[in-house]
Protein backbone atom coordinates (compact mmCIF):
# COMPACT_ATOMS: atom_id res chain seq x y z
CA UNK A 1 0.00 0.00 0.00
CA UNK A 2 2.78 2.36 1.04
CA UNK A 3 4.50 1.44 -2.20
CA UNK A 4 1.48 2.38 -4.31
CA UNK A 5 1.11 5.67 -2.46
CA UNK A 6 4.84 6.38 -2.90
CA UNK A 7 4.68 5.54 -6.60
CA UNK A 8 1.59 7.69 -7.11
CA UNK A 9 3.15 10.62 -5.26
CA UNK A 10 6.37 10.32 -7.25
CA UNK A 11 4.62 10.14 -10.60
CA UNK A 12 2.07 12.85 -9.79
CA UNK A 13 4.68 15.17 -8.35
CA UNK A 14 6.95 14.87 -11.35
CA UNK A 15 4.14 15.40 -13.87
CA UNK A 16 2.82 18.42 -12.00
CA UNK A 17 6.29 19.91 -11.64
CA UNK A 18 7.17 19.73 -15.32
CA UNK A 19 3.71 20.61 -16.66
CA UNK A 20 3.02 23.65 -14.48
CA UNK A 21 4.98 26.17 -16.59
CA UNK A 22 2.96 25.22 -19.68
CA UNK A 23 -0.37 25.27 -17.83
CA UNK A 24 0.26 28.51 -15.95
CA UNK A 25 2.08 30.17 -18.84
CA UNK A 26 5.27 30.79 -16.83
CA UNK A 27 8.23 31.67 -18.98
CA UNK A 28 11.95 31.14 -18.89
CA UNK A 29 13.83 34.04 -20.41
CA UNK A 30 15.32 33.42 -23.84
CA UNK A 31 16.89 36.84 -24.19
CA UNK A 32 20.42 37.95 -23.60
CA UNK A 33 20.55 39.63 -20.22
CA UNK A 34 21.54 43.29 -19.91
CA UNK A 35 24.77 42.74 -18.00
CA UNK A 36 26.15 40.10 -20.37
CA UNK A 37 29.11 41.09 -22.52
CA UNK A 38 28.19 41.70 -26.11
CA UNK A 39 30.40 40.42 -28.90
CA UNK A 40 32.12 43.78 -29.34
CA UNK A 41 32.57 44.20 -25.59
CA UNK A 42 34.20 40.77 -25.48
CA UNK A 43 36.46 41.82 -28.34
CA UNK A 44 37.38 44.99 -26.51
CA UNK A 45 38.23 43.04 -23.41
CA UNK A 46 40.32 40.54 -25.36
CA UNK A 47 42.33 43.27 -27.07
CA UNK A 48 42.89 45.11 -23.79
CA UNK A 49 44.15 41.88 -22.27
CA UNK A 50 46.33 41.33 -25.34
CA UNK A 51 47.76 44.78 -24.80
CA UNK A 52 48.65 43.82 -21.26
CA UNK A 53 50.18 40.54 -22.48
CA UNK A 54 52.30 42.37 -25.02
CA UNK A 55 53.58 44.64 -22.31
CA UNK A 56 54.53 41.67 -20.15
CA UNK A 57 56.02 39.78 -23.09
CA UNK A 58 58.22 42.80 -23.77
CA UNK A 59 59.10 43.30 -20.14
CA UNK A 60 60.06 39.61 -19.77
CA UNK A 61 62.19 39.68 -22.91
CA UNK A 62 59.98 37.63 -25.24
CA UNK A 63 59.56 40.45 -27.75
CA UNK A 64 62.06 42.66 -29.53
CA UNK A 65 61.53 46.37 -29.18
CA UNK A 66 60.60 46.67 -32.87
CA UNK A 67 58.07 43.84 -32.66
CA UNK A 68 56.75 45.25 -29.40
CA UNK A 69 56.08 48.64 -30.94
CA UNK A 70 54.53 47.16 -34.06
CA UNK A 71 52.36 44.77 -32.09
CA UNK A 72 51.36 47.45 -29.64
CA UNK A 73 50.25 49.66 -32.50
CA UNK A 74 48.42 46.79 -34.13
CA UNK A 75 46.59 45.74 -30.97
CA UNK A 76 45.83 49.33 -30.01
CA UNK A 77 44.17 49.77 -33.38
CA UNK A 78 42.15 46.59 -32.79
CA UNK A 79 41.22 47.77 -29.31
CA UNK A 80 40.19 51.16 -30.65
CA UNK A 81 38.06 49.58 -33.36
CA UNK A 82 36.41 47.37 -30.74
CA UNK A 83 35.90 50.38 -28.49
CA UNK A 84 34.20 52.30 -31.31
CA UNK A 85 32.01 49.32 -32.03
CA UNK A 86 30.98 49.13 -28.36
CA UNK A 87 30.12 52.82 -28.37
CA UNK A 88 28.19 52.55 -31.61
CA UNK A 89 26.33 49.59 -30.21
CA UNK A 90 25.33 51.33 -26.98
CA UNK A 91 24.37 54.38 -29.07
CA UNK A 92 22.15 52.17 -31.18
CA UNK A 93 20.68 50.61 -28.06
CA UNK A 94 19.94 54.03 -26.53
CA UNK A 95 18.47 55.22 -29.81
CA UNK A 96 16.41 52.05 -30.04
CA UNK A 97 15.04 52.47 -26.53
CA UNK A 98 14.12 56.09 -27.22
CA UNK A 99 12.37 55.10 -30.43
CA UNK A 100 10.52 52.40 -28.55
CA UNK A 101 9.43 54.88 -25.90
CA UNK A 102 8.36 57.32 -28.62
CA UNK A 103 6.55 54.50 -30.41
CA UNK A 104 4.78 53.56 -27.17
CA UNK A 105 3.48 57.10 -26.60
CA UNK A 106 2.28 57.30 -30.19
CA UNK A 107 0.38 54.05 -29.74
CA UNK A 108 -1.16 55.26 -26.45
CA UNK A 109 -2.37 58.47 -28.06
CA UNK A 110 -3.85 56.53 -30.97
CA UNK A 111 -5.70 54.23 -28.54
CA UNK A 112 -7.18 57.15 -26.59
CA UNK A 113 -8.29 58.80 -29.84
CA UNK A 114 -9.88 55.58 -30.98
CA UNK A 115 -11.67 55.30 -27.62
CA UNK A 116 -12.97 58.83 -27.86
CA UNK A 117 -14.21 58.11 -31.34
CA UNK A 118 -16.06 54.95 -30.30
CA UNK A 119 -17.20 56.46 -27.02
CA UNK A 120 -15.47 53.97 -24.64
CA UNK A 121 -13.01 56.55 -23.28
CA UNK A 122 -14.44 58.49 -20.36
CA UNK A 123 -14.66 62.25 -21.03
CA UNK A 124 -14.33 63.18 -17.38
CA UNK A 125 -11.41 60.95 -16.23
CA UNK A 126 -9.89 59.53 -19.43
CA UNK A 127 -10.25 55.87 -18.38
CA UNK A 128 -10.49 53.44 -21.28
CA UNK A 129 -13.48 51.17 -20.77
CA UNK A 130 -14.41 47.87 -22.37
CA UNK A 131 -16.50 47.94 -25.54
CA UNK A 132 -20.23 48.32 -24.95
CA UNK A 133 -19.86 50.00 -21.50
CA UNK A 134 -22.47 52.61 -20.55
CA UNK A 135 -20.77 53.93 -17.41
CA UNK A 136 -17.07 54.50 -16.65
CA UNK A 137 -15.58 51.66 -14.58
CA UNK A 138 -13.23 54.17 -12.94
CA UNK A 139 -15.37 57.25 -12.00
CA UNK A 140 -18.93 56.17 -12.74
CA UNK A 141 -19.64 58.98 -15.21
CA UNK A 142 -22.04 58.19 -18.02
CA UNK A 143 -20.27 57.41 -21.24
CA UNK A 144 -21.42 58.87 -24.59
CA UNK A 145 -23.58 56.34 -26.42
CA UNK A 146 -21.32 54.04 -28.45
CA UNK A 147 -23.70 54.26 -31.32
CA UNK A 148 -23.42 58.05 -31.43
CA UNK A 149 -22.05 59.30 -34.69
CA UNK A 150 -18.54 60.47 -34.12
CA UNK A 151 -17.94 64.19 -34.63
CA UNK A 152 -16.55 65.16 -38.00
Amino acid sequence: MALIVGAALLTGGVILYILLPVIQGRFASLERSEDELTESEAKKRVSLLALRDVEYDFATGKLDERDYKELKGEISREALAALREVEAESERRRGGAAAERAGGIEADIAAVREGLRTGTTCHSCGHMNADGSHFCANCGAQLPAATETPPG
Binding site: L10, V14, Y17, I18, L19, L20, P21, V22, G25, R26, F27, A28, S29, L30
Partner: peptide, 18 residues
Protein backbone atom coordinates in the same frame (compact mmCIF):
# COMPACT_ATOMS: atom_id res chain seq x y z
CA UNK B 1 8.49 29.63 -26.38
CA UNK B 2 9.74 30.41 -22.86
CA UNK B 3 7.09 28.25 -21.19
CA UNK B 4 8.18 25.14 -23.07
CA UNK B 5 11.82 25.87 -22.25
CA UNK B 6 11.00 26.28 -18.56
CA UNK B 7 9.20 22.95 -18.61
CA UNK B 8 12.24 21.38 -20.32
CA UNK B 9 14.58 22.81 -17.70
CA UNK B 10 12.37 21.45 -14.95
CA UNK B 11 12.53 18.08 -16.71
CA UNK B 12 16.32 18.16 -16.28
CA UNK B 13 15.95 18.57 -12.52
CA UNK B 14 13.15 15.99 -12.39
CA UNK B 15 15.20 13.43 -14.33
CA UNK B 16 18.09 13.98 -11.94
CA UNK B 17 15.86 13.39 -8.92
CA UNK B 18 14.37 10.27 -10.53
Amino acid sequence: RGDLVLSAERSVYAVFAL
